[in-house]
Amino acid sequence: MSVSERSILLIGESGVGKTHYGAQLLKRLMKGDGQLRMDGAATNLEPFEAAMESLNEGMAAGHTPTTTYVDSVWPIADVGGRKAELVWPDYGGEQIKAISSNRRIPAAWRARVVNAPAWLLLVRLQQTRVSDDIFSRPLSTLKGTGIENREVQVSDQARLIELLQMLLYIRGAITTKPLATPRLCVLLSCWDELDADKQPAAILEQRLPMFASFVESTWSEPSVLGLSALERPLSPRDRDMEYAARGPEQFGYVVLPDGQRSTDLTVPIQRLFDATL
């Protein structure tokens, strides 16, 4: 049984819940009742210490500083006893935003993009929208031409697709065939905000149709899952008493492709690595 290193390229803009998911995932791995469990001790829990502390108190974690990028290495094992090392990053989401807007990719990111066998993209649908246009809200008299040089707000769908296109280019993965590697999982985070009981892929198709179709046509087997890492909104100041009393490991769920909920937060990772572990 060889120990292989599995790093995850976690992609998410700021405010999508990367740190919350990391902290909750770590808690679940340590609890050890899911598909994956911690096999030994993690080398460095510091990046998630503050977040886990806040969650223990029933409060939301603070914002991750923009310049931070820390990899934590977690020895994990699955139910079949197969072992691997999961490299889980934590960073300020502004780095992703900067890549999109500057169209320059820092060298450190290149190594991550090229080496990671699996990409996990966190999208918070409450932060994205398709704005109304002349077709969805018609105007009876459309007169006059637009002002030139008006500042153009790039739509959320276009920004997300362009980000993936950039990462694919850096990886050298632009082909005519649907991609088998890197494996991609789109996690729709903060699922509890959506108030939806449909399948995650259907929700993505409905909310961001162009993005959903890009993902479908670029990857051969993309998976779309829902995630509510906290299960309910927490405030950074006022504590949620029930949370503090029962512990954050009792909260949070993943929505599987068929719409079923699972309290095992390690499922997205297990699915990404299932073929390669």
């Binding site: 153009v152 707000q153 697709i161 296109q165 179709s213 890009f214 046509s217």
Partner: peptide
């Protein structure tokens, strides 16, 4: 199915 574009800023 839509499969990408290299001129998003132009389209937008």
């Amino acid at each position: 199915r839509f499969a990408g574009s290299y001129s998003f800023a132009g389209w937008e």
